[in-house]
């Protein structure tokens, strides 16, 4: 096979054409996958909202409110839920940076007095078979948060003097989970205190 000779013109031209073709192809794929990606994100969000909140008619505002957390730099998202005009609870999208594989996001639902209704994992990279037991489908670890009010429920693992039984062999993931719930709770209570008339 004869190698094509390299002149400045055809080198520049080739690189330009290759990159242009690549850019075009990617723009096309990006636009076709944009909708399914958003759809997936919406489904994950809706499933989580349905799980952590009691029956509700609407979320107001539907895209949630960004609230600066008590500690940490990125905002949490609050989804206040209403049945009719009556507030029935607030779902808080919260995160922790203490996961075994870095940051993960969970959703925590609070009733108006601050009691945890339920939790749901949104996105994580924790180790399969260990840290991923924080998902409701994989173990009953998240169940112990149900119906507890952090006012009299220590939001840390028993090893650290709290009331949460850590996942066997996944203390770091369990601690991180508590950290995320705790961040949500503190921010939620603080916002309520400030917002109450």
């Amino acid at each position: 096979m004869a190698k094509k000779e390299s002149t400045l013109l055809n080198m520049v031209l080739t690189l330009f054409l290759v990159t242009a073709a690549a850019g075009l192809a990617l723009a096309l794929v990006y636009n076709t996958t944009l909708e399914p990606i958003q759809q997936v994100e919406k489904e994950v969000l809706e499933t989580a909202l349905g799980r952590v909140l009691p029956e509700f008619d609407k979320i107001e505002p539907p895209s949630g409110i960004e609230v600066a957390p008590e500690n940490g730099k990125d905002p949490l998202v609050f989804y206040p839920a209403y049945k009719g005009e009556e507030p029935v609870g607030t779902a808080v999208k919260t995160y922790t940076d203490q996961g075994f594989s870095g940051r993960f996001w969970i959703m925590v639902g609070f009733s108006p007095d601050g009691t945890i209704i339920n939790t749901a994992v949104l996105e994580h990279k924790e180790t399969p078979g260990l840290g991923d037991k924080m998902e409701t489908e994989k173990s009953d670890f998240p169940d112990q948060f149900k119906g507890e009010n952090p006012a009299d429920f220590g939001l840390s693992v028993t090893k650290d003097g709290g009331d949460v039984d850590a996942i066997t062999a996944a203390t770091i993931s369990s601690r991180a989970f508590c950290d995320a719930v705790d961040r949500a709770y503190k921010t939620f209570m603080n916002k309520n205190k400030g917002g109450a008339k």
Partner: peptide, 9 residues
């Protein structure tokens, strides 16, 4: 595309 790509790039 092997035959239309100049060797150096």
């Amino acid at each position: 595309v092997k035959s239309v790509i100049p060797n150096k790039v």
